[in-house]
Nucleic acid binder design. Structure first.
Length: 426
DNA sequence: TCTGGGGTCCTAGGACCC
DNA sequence: TCTGGGGTCCTAGGACCC
């Protein structure tokens, strides 16, 4: 530690969701393809061809229907079972090269390459890229640099520039400055719309200009401590180390936008009950219990006029991951915030103050039989694991066909890799 | 009548990420 | 008509305490 100066690589899957669909449907190669968010709402992944047609990230499907039609854009509902499984395959492939990997998101990983001999770094990157493509079918770009922020910039250029062949090492300085000058501030990791506007108002337009800023207090005032770290990272001083084992989660959220607005308390109750159950399952998978439960409901933020948003917070007497107990409290919370006369478009639950399940302190007057509840939940999870999700559930979540709020996905591909009934046919 | 200052904790909101 | 979901961190301001 500390003897070797750090060297990071960022492995970033290209248009990940689209690439996953292409692995199992090669006819999509070379065609414009988009993958939609929940409820087939917005485009959340676009192939290069779709980007070239001007389809923006997050564009609502109903606004791009005409282009979809005229250009024959291939449309897919998101298939998270497939993407999650493909992600695992990519990460396992990387682990064949080094154990020092931080899985940063479903389609990105940081690698620590500090201990590698510096002369053949780019060749090493190319081997990783070729192996991932060969073993999983997923194309990736790789950026290499002294800090994570610089590796992100390198990866961004590697993805766009044909010349790099998908791998760019920015440790060599003339190349570094040129790349920074070519990087718009809005494309820097950690710079969003607000900071981008602020920087441009002050004539800081690219990453090189930001790196060379000498008035730190003015940055600190507007962008806080993260702003200062950002500049350091651009200067090659690493502020964000590799995090090999992920820190424990601080909260678990389950929320959905309803395709059709929901008016009645009983409909919202069913949705909330379902979210409680989904979230409780996640809690148990993490071997955690929640100390605080929050319930929220809201009307559409795109609608003019009467809006309503509210959140109910409930401190649980004893932290728990028991579905029926959580449902009881969620119902109370919901009834506190529910108002008649609104069209609700979205609702959700949040579990907070998570802690390991083996650290619960019971209160003296706790009358619930906790051992029995733990056994019941284990049985429930096992049955749903074996026979299929949703085999056993609580009646309060509603029966399959009376859920008006339930999501739609009209363009779903099959779960090629995770469901025996949906394997690829040849 | 004159009425301090420092510390902690909590929460809401803003900013960012994918 | 139709507009995603799940996270993190930081900061400012209020409540409260001594």
């Amino acid at each position: 530690m500390g003897l070797v100066s750090p060297l990071f690589a960022l492995v970033d899957c290209n248009n990940f969701y689209v690439s996953c669909e292409r692995v199992f449907n090669p006819r999509l190669e070379g065609k414009p393809v988009i993958v939609l968010s929940n409820n087939d709402g917005c485009a959340v992944a676009r192939s290069n061809e779709a980007k070239a047609l001007g389809i923006k990230m997050g564009a609502p499907l109903f606004k791009i229907r005409d282009r979809v039609k005229t250009h024959g854009i291939q449309v897919y509902s998101s298939n998270y079972a497939l993407y999650g499984d493909m992600s695992q395959r990519v990460m396992k492939t990387i682990l064949n090269f080094t154990p020092d990997i931080e899985i940063y998101s479903i389609d990105e990983a940081f690698l620590d390459l500090s201990h590698l001999s510096r002369c053949d770094i780019t060749a090493y990157g190319r081997r990783i890229k070729a192996t991932i493509k060969k073993w999983t079918g997923i194309p990736v770009s790789i950026g290499i640099a002294k800090t994570k922020t610089l590796a992100k910039i390198a990866g961004g250029i590697a993805k766009k520039s044909q010349k790099t062949g998908g791998v760019l090492d920015l440790t060599i300085s003339p190349c570094l400055d040129r790349s920074l000058a070519l990087t718009d501030v809005k494309d820097i990791w950690g710079v969003g719309p607000a900071y981008s506007r602020f920087l441009k108002e002050n004539n800081i337009n690219n990453a090189l200009q930001l790196r060379n800023v000498n008035n730190n207090t003015f940055i600190k005032k507007k962008m806080g401590v993260p702003g200062l770290r950002l500049i350091q990272e651009l200067q090659g001083i690493s502020c964000y180390p590799l995090e090999i084992s992920p820190p424990p989660k601080k909260g678990i959220t389950v929320s959905r936008t309803f395709k059709h607005p929901v008016e009645t308390l009983s409909e919202v109750e069913k949705a909330i009950a379902t979210f409680i159950s989904m979230g409780a399952k996640k809690l148990r998978k993490e071997r955690s219990v929640a100390g605080v439960l929050m319930v929220f409901i809201m009307t559409s933020r795109f609608r003019k006029g009467h809006q309503y948003y509210n959140m109910g917070t409930i401190r649980l007497p004893v932290p728990t991951s028991d579905t029926s107990e959580l449902m009881k409290y969620a119902g109370k919370g919901l009834r506190k915030i529910f108002r008649k006369g609104y069209n609700y478009k979205k609702a959700g639950i949040i579990y907070k103050e998570l802690r390991p399940e083996n650290q619960i302190q019971t209160v003296f007057f706790d009358c619930k039989d906790r051992n029995r509840s733990v056994k019941l939940m284990q049985t429930l999870d096992e049955i749903n694991e074996k026979i299929g999700p949703g085999t056993l559930k609580y009646a309060s979540a509603g029966l399959i066909n009376d859920r008006q709020w339930q999501p739609v996905s009209n363009y779903r591909s099959r779960s090629y890799t995770t469901n025996w009934d949906q394997l690829l046919e040849i």
